[in-house]
C-alpha cells in the first residue's frame, strides 16, 4: 500500500514539474479566504494573466499563520493573500514578507495597509466587530439599547452579554486590542474589568456571541459584524450597534518570494478589478473607488478604531496572558 502511495506521489510530483516547465508558471498562494470564492479569484486573475496559474493553499487564519511561521526557514508560499493584518505584521517582523511597492498603490485607502516604513503588506478588505442587540429579548427584559461601550457596563445588562474569548478567537482579540489602543491601556483594562461583571460567558468563536444574541440565548453579543448582518437578513430580530472605536482588521496581501510572477499576483490583488470582486463579500474594501452598501451592514467607516496591527501582533501573547489571568479563570459562568 505504502509503496504504491509513494509511487503515485512521485508521479504526481513529476507531472507537476513537467507541466510547469513548459506550460504555465505556477505561483503558490497561501490564503485564509473562504473556499467558495477562491475559484472566482483564481479565474479572474488567470484570465488577465494567462501565463500564470495560481495554486491555492487554504486554511483558517490561525493555522495558516502557524504554518507560515513553521515554514519560516524554507518558505513554500510565494504570495500570502487574504490573511489578517495582524498576522501579516507578525510575518513581516519575522522577515517572511518582502517589502515591495505594488503598481496602483496610490489608489488604495492607506488605513488598511502596512503602516510601517518599507511597506510589505497591502489591505484587500476589512472586517469589523459590532454589538448585536436582540430587540425582542431586550423588550422582554426591558433593556435599553446601548449606544456606547460604557453603556455596556451598566448593571442592567448584568448576565446578558456574551463576547468571544480573545484567547480562542481572533475576533475577540481584535476588540480587546481596539480597546487597548483607543482607550489607553489602563482605562481599557479597567473597562474590561467592569464589563466582565456583566458578561454571561466568553465563547470560543468570534461569531458565536452574535449567534447567541440572534437566538435570544443572550441579549447582547460583541461579535463579528458580517455575521450579525447575515443573521439579520435571515430574520433574526437584531440591531447592529457600532459605538466609536469598534475593532476591525484588514485582510491583506504580501510578497514572500521575490519573483516576477509573484509580484504580478500581488499587483493584481490590489487592482480595481480584484476589489470589485471583494466588495461582493466584504462591506469595506481597500480601493478608494470601490464602495457599496451591504444589506443590513452598519456604516462603520467613521467609527473604526485606530489600529496599529504591528503592535496588535507584538503584544498579543502578553495581552492574552494578562487577560486569561484576569478573566479566564472564572470557574462558573454567572447567571
Amino acid at each position: 500500500m505504502k509503496a504504491r502511495f509513494m509511487k503515485t506521489a512521485l508521479v504526481t510530483a513529476l507531472t507537476l514539474c513537467a507541466a510547469t516547465s513548459y506550460a504555465k508558471q505556477e505561483v503558490t498562494v497561501y490564503t485564509a479566504f473562504e473556499t467558495d470564492i477562491l475559484a472566482k479569484y483564481k479565474n479572474a486573475f488567470e484570465q488577465e494573466n494567462p501565463d500564470i496559474a495560481i495554486k491555492w493553499v487554504r486554511d483558517s487564519t490561525g493555522i495558516m499563520t502557524a504554518k507560515l511561521l513553521a515554514e519560516k526557514n524554507n518558505p513554500r508560499a510565494e504570495v500570502v493573500w487574504g490573511l489578517a493584518g495582524s498576522s501579516m505584521a507578525l510575518l513581516k517582523s519575522e522577515g517572511i514578507l518582502k517589502s515591495y511597492t505594488p503598481q496602483g498603490l496610490g489608489e488604495l485607502n492607506n488605513a488598511l495597509n502596512d503602516p510601517q516604513a518599507s511597506q510589505a503588506w497591502f489591505g484587500n478588505d476589512a472586517y469589523f466587530n459590532a454589538i448585536c442587540f436582540n430587540d425582542i429579548v431586550a423588550k422582554q427584559l426591558n433593556l435599553p439599547k446601548p449606544t456606547s461601550w460604557d453603556d455596556l457596563t451598566k448593571p442592567i445588562y448584568k448576565g446578558h452579554i456574551a463576547m468571544p474569548n480573545p484567547a480562542s478567537s481572533g475576533t475577540g482579540y481584535m476588540q480587546v486590542s481596539a480597546w487597548l489602543q483607543n482607550m489607553g491601556e489602563d482605562s481599557a483594562w479597567k473597562y474590561m474589568q467592569k464589563l466582565d461583571t456583566n458578561i454571561a460567558h466568553y465563547t470560543h468563536s468570534g461569531s458565536k456571541p452574535c449567534v447567541q444574541a440572534g437566538m435570544g440565548e443572550v441579549a447582547i453579543g460583541i461579535s463579528m459584524a458580517s455575521r450579525g448582518a447575515k443573521l439579520k437578513t435571515q430574520g433574526a430580530p437584531l440591531s447592529l450597534i457600532t459605538p466609536k472605536g469598534i475593532g476591525w482588521e484588514s485582510e491583506a496581501v504580501g510578497l514572500v518570494k521575490d519573483s516576477d510572477a509573484a509580484k504580478r499576483v500581488v499587483d493584481w490583488s490590489i487592482s480595481k478589478n480584484a476589489n470589485e470582486l471583494y466588495i461582493e463579500m466584504y462591506p469595506v474594501v481597500a480601493h478608494k473607488e470601490v464602495v457599496s452598501e451591504m444589506k443590513n451592514f452598519p456604516n462603520v467607516k467613521q467609527v473604526m478604531a485606530k489600529m496599529d496591527f504591528a503592535r496588535m501582533g507584538d503584544e498579543r501573547a502578553d495581552v492574552l496572558n494578562k487577560w486569561s489571568d484576569k478573566f479566564d479563570s472564572k470557574s462558573e459562568p454567572k447567571s
Binding site: 490561525g62 493555522i63 499563520t65 502557524a66 480562542s168 481572533g170 470560543h204 459562568p333
Partner: peptide, 22 residues
C-alpha cells in the same frame, strides 16, 4: 455549550486555533 467553563480539551483548542501557540 461550555460557556466560560474551561476544560483542558478546550484549552488545547484555544492554544492551537486561537493563539497558534503550539
Amino acid at each position: 455549550i461550555g460557556g466560560s467553563y474551561n476544560v483542558l480539551a478546550t484549552d488545547i483548542f484555544k492554544q492551537v486555533v486561537g493563539q497558534q501557540n503550539f
